[in-house]
Computed example of a mutant assay.
Amino acid sequence: MTSASYRARRGELETYFDRTAAEAWKRLTSDAPVSGIRATVRAGRDDMRKTLLSWLPDDMHGMRLLDAGCGTGALAIEAARRGASVTAVDICPTLIGLARERAESRQGAGEIRFSVGDMLDPTLGRFDHVVAMDSLIHYCATDMVTAVEQLAARSRGAVLFTFAPRTALLAVMHAAGRFFPRGDRAPTIEPVSNDRLSAMLTAGGRILLGRGRRVARGFYVSQAMEVLPT
């Protein structure tokens, strides 16, 4: 069960990524030249993706992975190269179409099933690991925690996700970002402090926290968190 606020924000994100920002994200996730602002976001996302992949097994043969909010599919493709059977889901049909195109030339023993839909849909099944890279950062803390709990309930292993850490620097950057051209702006994110989020996740005693790492590259600031099965 998802909240009304989760569903409302999901609808806003679907509209933004599918109608407004699809072309920008196509360029951002390629080798095409981008603005200085977007270049820092590209570098930060590359660093974060490498971090999350380093927390997954090198050999994923026989494992099921959920890439929750897969975007253009870069992480899903790498996991499939390690042998994983990947379910890659995103709310944006345009990005899923692009991900399918890019995956056609991949090499590896695994497979990817791309799907347009909600990453919290229980019909997606159960998994050995779940990754949600920068797909929960637009939701309020309560909805984020609920989402992580639901994903953890469907994972036999770790759930790896990212959030926007509440810092003075990030607040200044967001304020400054209002003065940039609209095409360089990202959707509103919901910063939350690491201490508050950790306390909310562990309050019920059903979740254990593992590794964490913050990536800060110019206008990209995101923090990775590992949730372990109890």
Rank of each mutant, 00 (worst) to 15 (best):
M1D: 12
M1W: 04
S3H: 13
S3R: 03
S5M: 14
R9E: 15
E12H: 00
R19I: 02
A22V: 13
A24L: 02
W25I: 07
K26D: 13
R27P: 01
R27Q: 13
L28S: 10
S30N: 01
S30A: 09
I37P: 03
A39C: 09
T40S: 15
V41Y: 07
R42G: 07
R42C: 00
R45V: 13
D47A: 14
W55I: 05
L56F: 02
D58G: 08
M60S: 12
H61D: 11
H61K: 15
R64Y: 07
L66Y: 01
A68E: 06
A68I: 09
T72V: 09
G73L: 01
G73D: 03
L75A: 14
A80H: 02
R81Q: 10
G83V: 05
A84V: 11
D90V: 14
I91K: 03
I91T: 02
P93L: 10
T94C: 09
A99R: 07
R106P: 01
Q107P: 05
R113E: 11
F114Q: 01
V116M: 01
G117N: 00
D118A: 02
G125W: 01
D134T: 02
S135M: 09
S135W: 07
L136K: 07
Y139V: 14
C140Q: 13
A141S: 08
T142P: 07
D143F: 12
E149G: 01
S155H: 04
S155W: 05
A158T: 15
V159Y: 07
T162C: 04
R166N: 08
A168S: 05
L170V: 00
V172S: 12
A175I: 06
A176H: 02
A176P: 00
F180T: 06
G183N: 08
A186C: 12
I189E: 02
I189D: 06
P191D: 04
A199F: 03
M200L: 15
G204Y: 11
I207F: 13
R211P: 09
G212W: 01
A216E: 04
R217I: 02
Y220H: 06
V221A: 04
V221D: 06
A224G: 11
M225T: 01
M225W: 04
V227T: 15
P229M: 12
P229Q: 12
